[in-house]
Design a protein around this nucleic acid. Sequence first.
DNA 1: TACAGTTGTTCATTATATTGAGCGATCAAG
DNA 2: CTTGATCGCTCAATATAATGAACAACTGTA
Lengths: 184, 184
Amino acid sequence: MAEGNGFDLGSRLKTLREAHNLSQRELAKRAGVSNAIISMIEQNRSSPSVGMLKKLLDGFPLSLAEFFALEVPPKPQIYFAARELVELAGGSISYRQVGRDLAGRALQMLHERYAPGADTGELSHNAEECGIILRGRLEVTVGDQVKVLGPGEAYYFDSRTTHRFRNLGDEECEAVSANSPPSF
Amino acid sequence: MAEGNGFDLGSRLKTLREAHNLSQRELAKRAGVSNAIISMIEQNRSSPSVGMLKKLLDGFPLSLAEFFALEVPPKPQIYFAARELVELAGGSISYRQVGRDLAGRALQMLHERYAPGADTGELSHNAEECGIILRGRLEVTVGDQVKVLGPGEAYYFDSRTTHRFRNLGDEECEAVSANSPPSF
DNA sequence: TACAGTTGTTCATTATATTGAGCGATCAAG
DNA sequence: CTTGATCGCTCAATATAATGAACAACTGTA
């Protein structure tokens, strides 16, 4: 049925259709679909498949990318509840990112938790990286240097040199890190 | 069923999922859908509704706009058959545009046909506009100036001043016009 | 070997989207 | 007032997507 989702696909389609001076039936003919479904979609009484939407947009024509690019640009969020940090990849390591869409942003900040024994393996990406340990202990390897850091201690290095994080202890380790530009 | 459409939504989703180190089941849990449908979608054996796709992308998270923005940029078309000119709005006036997606382009060229009696009404948009009459006669009003143009004659004006086109004769009028930037 | 956990896949059932036809309302022409 | 042609909307029938449970293949552990 209609989407309980946020945005209003129906009226966007309707606006678009009317901007092109097309009736539901005209658009239906162009797109090769029935007119009924356009009525349903515009009322959000039906959630079209991506294929259906593509057919409809071809009638204008407009690409899917363009269509969704017209979306209300989400006003940049400034404050984030702990719950709103977004988990990047579960498992024994938890990365909770501040902000969802970092495209065009300069910073990527992560709230990290390493289970005992957790190991990132060797990493390298094109950025700079900095972090502070909050709780537990974390072995940080950068190039040929290795050090185990504890609460209050920190690191800063060029992410292009291969690096690795491991929690060797038997208690969870908690840290906060930042990349610039976002690269993880 | 799957889309006979051009692009491969399935493998794009799969790539995205694997880039995030998520299994089909993990993603399913995050998105609140069944794991089976992810398998189907990734094989293009099912064409997800926009709502379904949105749920899935929320699991990464990624917006619909971002997802489709990753699309292979369609290599710019250089040559267009007469049939490929895209009709912008039917009726007594036909505007056939050269090229589908003019986003980021500087020019919008239209092949226009005005049925006898056709009238655009008053227009104004933020661009410059130029055209040549090929066949028939066209009354062109720009600001307080009015002139009827015939084959071989032309116009050039700032589209911000209100303007209007009318075919007063009893034969069809054919013209070619260009806007910069695309604004119609 | 055996076991428990995971992976992605398939199947029948259920929910939903889509079709094709028909409805009343509106408008212009005769 | 008719007639014909639109408009968008609704309804029953059909096609398709989505679910939940099961499957074989593969993993690491005992």
